[in-house]
Amino acid sequence: MSRIVDVPAQFDEQGLDQLATAIGAWPPSDRLFFDARGVQWAAPYALIGLLTAAQAITEAGGEKPLLAVPAADEVRSYWGRIAFFQHAGGLFEFHGKLPKARGTQPADSLLEITPVRATEDVHQVVGRIQEGASRILAGELGLEAKATMGFAMALSEACQNIVEHAGTGGWVAVQAYNYRRRLGRRVAVIAVSDSGIGFRRSLEPTQAKRYGDRWRDGTALEAALIQGVSRFRDPGRGQGLAGIKRYLQRWQGKISVRSGTARIAIVPAWDDDVPLVEELSFFPGAQLQVTIPAQEAGTT
């Protein structure tokens, strides 16, 4: 017996929250049937989140979920070109027509969905991104050349969080697109997701005692992102997220990190997101999204 979980039509950051709510208690006791037929638009963040959900179900010993693929040709084709189906093949049982071949990577995609399991993967990801990042950040988003270095650094640190803290593999994707809904400008987005132990469990051995009853997903995210706390005692640790924050402040970028039942964000002036949301529906692991907007004339 399977239970249908609707994948939201606008499958973005909020769409992934809706998906978590639809999944309900974790781990799900029923076999899940993800129905993506009605999806009209999907962000890389949400697509790697969907992969993460399936990976976490498998790792929890659940039955391989079913996935009804998007009905719209162009949506299905995009999912194919960004390599979603390539990686989803082992995680889902598909229902519906898959695109014939993966075809060319989308023109705006800097990095199609790529697994991150080990240090070597981070080297590959950072190496592959550099040429395209320069073209898009400097050429299309109007950022200075040095922004490309910071972008690659942010990508490296974000991916390393998976390798060092998750305890399992994860996914990364990088894309530029027009962010009409909130910004009306082009953005470059780094999306990273894993199905690992999450921030609360990662920091628990060294931090939980300090917080006592207040220790939960939200406080763990605050400790990591705002205070730069690390589970390691080495004074050089805990600098990765701090470095990403510094980079984003310079380019009016946004970072949001979801883990467990909470999401924290450093919110730039152009966005109206809230800094901390708690009591969300549980979602496994950690999801990170970095958004760099095109610079307005005269801001660089």
Binding site: H123, V126, A152
Partner: peptide, 14 residues
């Protein structure tokens, strides 16, 4: 130290 075609000094193990 690392078998990679890129001269990027990235990751803590590297």
């Amino acid at each position: 130290a690392v078998t990679t075609p890129y001269l990027n000094l990235v990751t803590r193990p590297t």
